[in-house]
Simulated scan of single mutants.
Amino acid sequence: MAFLGTLCLILILTTLAGNLSNRLGVPAVIGELLVGIVLGPALLNWVQLNSLVSLFADIGVVILMFLGGLESNLQLLMKYLRPAIVVATSGVIFPVALMGLTSWWWGFTPLESLFIGVIFSATSVSISVAVLKEYHALTTREGATILGAAVADDIIGVILLSLMISLLASQGIQMAGSQPALALVLMEQVVFFVGTYALVKWIAPYLMHLSERLVVPSSVTIMSMVICLGMAWIADIVGLSGAIGAFFAGIAVAHTPYRAVLADHVEPLGNAIFIPVFFVSVGLNMTLDHLVENLGIIVILTVLACVTKLIGCGLGARLSGFSNLSSTVIGTGMIARGEMGLITAQIGHEAGLLGGSDYSAMILVIILATVLAPLLLKQALKHMPTGRPEQAV
């Protein structure tokens, strides 16, 4: 029952912090992230990232991405699929190359440096989705490209992580647990996307229509959550982020007559409990262990974490025909890091590639980049024209 008090404290402080952030003209997610930093091990240490907080956070990111899919335009996503792939690819190359070289120059071994580059290659678009929703930019061409690039980025991240695990094994470094072959992982993901097409085309419309005929309160909302959680679970099984599965579940349900009803029902559920806990959990990951001795590399890598995605993804967008302003929006929308980076860092720590102080530094850089991302995205969005569903700037 102690968790109820923790949850109550989180909800009170995130509500106040979100209100203050909005009054100051700052994205509300910034206030919620800072609540996690203040409450967590970095400062007061009142709240720890235990299993219950992690569970609520996992549900929060799933609901957030489901809502993102619910508000997305599938035709727009398909229209900008090619530039999204270009953006994702260039946005992976730049961090791996520049952050890897910088780490090597700082004194890390070549293998450690490559691993650090891979840590910061993946984007966590969940926080960008919250900012895009707040500024009504999810259905713009920039928003569609960011969302499409996030899907491609997740797949590339899984490939890179699998390759790194294979490389570690070739160096005699054995990982705990068995790792599936890369070919098998890719085949499973192909099956996942084929199933996603079937879900959008046939399965979701049938299930949603069936749910309306059930004599159960909120049956339509319940069925939508079954689809959402089920897709998140399957995506996790095939090596993708559960957030990606939830995003496609939102797209599938959005192509049924129940879209407006679900937005009214699911969004209050997410914003009332689970989504604030997700943002707080990001801040709870931060610790200040070995901060002074690693301050130099933390500052350098934090700057590079932002710059490499901004330039890499922005260049990909520019090569795809976007204007400088649109390219900046797309670049800033891809800066945030998240679960894939944390997982990769943890693997490096378990393999002995990243010692305790280096591991803490990498986690801190991930958190700092994630905190800076919505601020930079908000500044870029301020210059975007409003009032059109598909911006061409």
Rank of each mutant, 00 (worst) to 15 (best):
residue 155 I to E: 03
residue 156 I to W: 07
residue 133 K to M: 14
residue 90 S to R: 11
residue 148 G to I: 02
residue 178 S to R: 11
residue 114 L to I: 03
residue 181 A to V: 08
residue 154 D to I: 00
residue 126 S to K: 03
residue 163 L to K: 02
residue 171 Q to A: 15
residue 117 G to Y: 01
residue 216 V to L: 15
residue 178 S to N: 12
residue 154 D to L: 01
residue 129 V to A: 13
residue 93 I to T: 05
residue 156 I to D: 01
residue 175 M to L: 10
residue 139 T to V: 06
residue 191 V to H: 14
residue 151 V to R: 04
residue 213 R to V: 08
residue 137 A to C: 00
residue 120 F to R: 06
residue 140 T to Q: 13
residue 207 L to D: 00
residue 159 I to W: 05
residue 174 Q to S: 11
residue 137 A to S: 05
residue 205 P to K: 03
residue 162 S to T: 10
residue 122 A to M: 10
residue 116 I to R: 07
residue 134 E to N: 09
residue 207 L to K: 02
residue 125 V to P: 00
residue 144 A to K: 07
residue 155 I to G: 03
residue 204 A to P: 00
residue 115 F to T: 12
residue 205 P to C: 08
residue 120 F to S: 04
residue 127 I to W: 06
residue 153 D to T: 03
residue 107 G to K: 06
residue 215 V to W: 15
residue 217 P to V: 13
residue 152 A to P: 04
residue 125 V to F: 00
residue 90 S to A: 14
residue 142 E to S: 07
residue 117 G to L: 01
residue 131 V to E: 02
residue 172 G to K: 02
residue 159 I to D: 01
residue 128 S to Y: 03
residue 167 L to Q: 04
residue 172 G to P: 00
residue 201 K to P: 10
residue 91 G to C: 02
residue 104 W to V: 09
residue 89 T to L: 09
residue 154 D to G: 01
residue 132 L to V: 01
residue 175 M to P: 02
residue 93 I to W: 04
residue 113 S to P: 11
residue 113 S to R: 06
residue 170 S to W: 14
residue 133 K to F: 13
residue 211 S to R: 07
residue 199 L to D: 00
residue 124 S to Q: 05
residue 203 I to D: 00
residue 166 S to M: 14
residue 176 A to E: 15
residue 172 G to Y: 03
residue 135 Y to I: 11
residue 191 V to Y: 13
residue 154 D to K: 04
residue 109 T to H: 11
residue 143 G to A: 00
residue 192 F to H: 04
residue 196 T to F: 04
residue 203 I to M: 06
residue 217 P to F: 12
residue 150 A to S: 06
residue 218 S to G: 15
residue 144 A to M: 03
residue 108 F to P: 02
residue 189 Q to T: 03
residue 100 G to W: 06
residue 189 Q to W: 03
residue 192 F to D: 00
residue 161 L to M: 12
residue 110 P to D: 07
residue 126 S to C: 11
residue 116 I to M: 08
residue 169 A to G: 15
residue 144 A to S: 09
residue 215 V to D: 12
residue 208 M to Q: 08
